Amino acid sequence: MTYAHDMPTPEKAVRTDAGLASELRLSVMRLRRRLAAERHPDNPLSMGQLALLGALYRNGDQSVGELAARERVQPPSMTRTINCLADGGYVERRSHPSDGRQVVVALTDEGRAVLLADRARRDEWLSRRLAGLSAEERDVLRRATPILQRLAEAD
């Protein structure tokens, strides 16, 4: 029989890579859910649709294939998402500047406005939470942010 006092504490668990992976996964997923909950109630877009708008905002016009690869989904799934966003006026399709056979997807003014309003609302919530941390804790997060980014982008 295992008793509660025999179970590793979170402090002990993160001493191993497996324990760190488990605690980090849980923390990141909880934070993601909390940030998702901070979306504006009038925003009709899913988190996946907002991620697509964010990719276009950061990287400019892209083909369906480029967007699918970046978001790690199959091209038919990306096409469905783009069709939905185009129907709502958030993106538009344009001719590729150097290859007339290709189409690129571009962010519209409406798409940019919805994305930036959503980001501002969630950034405001997170800024309020960060303000409650010590300077040392905020410094740890500043140093961890590029590492988390690398983990997110790793193949």
Rank of each mutant, 00 (worst) to 15 (best):
R94L: 14
A86I: 00
R94D: 04
A51Q: 11
L53N: 00
R39M: 05
S98G: 14
D99E: 12
G65E: 08
D118G: 14
A106G: 04
A68R: 02
R94N: 04
L31K: 04
V104W: 08
P41D: 09
T79W: 07
L53V: 06
T108F: 06
V114G: 01
S98Y: 15
D118C: 06
R70F: 03
R58G: 04
H40V: 03
A69Y: 12
R30K: 12
D61L: 07
S27N: 07
L50E: 02
R93P: 02
Q49P: 06
A117R: 15
N83P: 00
A69W: 04
V73K: 01
E71G: 01
T79L: 11
H96D: 15
V104C: 07
A55L: 12
D109H: 12
V114C: 08
D118S: 15
L45S: 09
A106V: 14
R39W: 01
L107F: 02
L85D: 00
A86W: 01
L67W: 00
R112N: 08
Q74E: 05
G100E: 06
L31Q: 12
A68Y: 00
G88P: 04
A37R: 14
H96F: 06
A36I: 09
M47H: 09
V104K: 09
V28Y: 10
R94Q: 10
R119H: 01
R33D: 14
P44N: 06
T79F: 14
P76W: 09
G65Y: 07
M47P: 02
R119Q: 07
A55W: 08
V105Q: 02
C84P: 03
L45W: 07
Y90L: 13
T79H: 12
S46C: 14
R94E: 11
L50D: 01
A36V: 13
E71V: 03
E38H: 12
C84F: 13
R70I: 09
G89A: 10
V103S: 10
R101S: 11
A55E: 15
V64W: 00
I82A: 11
G111N: 06
E38W: 04
S46H: 13
S95V: 10
G54T: 07
Q74H: 10
A55Y: 08
G48T: 10
V64F: 03
E38A: 14
A51K: 11
G89C: 08
S77C: 08
V105L: 01
R32F: 10
V91W: 02
A113H: 13
Q74K: 15
M29V: 14
R34P: 00
R33V: 05
A117E: 10
P41N: 09
L53F: 03
Y57D: 05
G111S: 13
S27Q: 04
P76F: 05
N83S: 15
Q102H: 07
D99A: 13
T108H: 06
D87F: 03
R72K: 06
V28P: 01
L116R: 10
V105T: 15
S63Y: 05
L85N: 00
H40L: 12
S27F: 07
M29Q: 13
V28A: 11
V91C: 13
V28G: 04
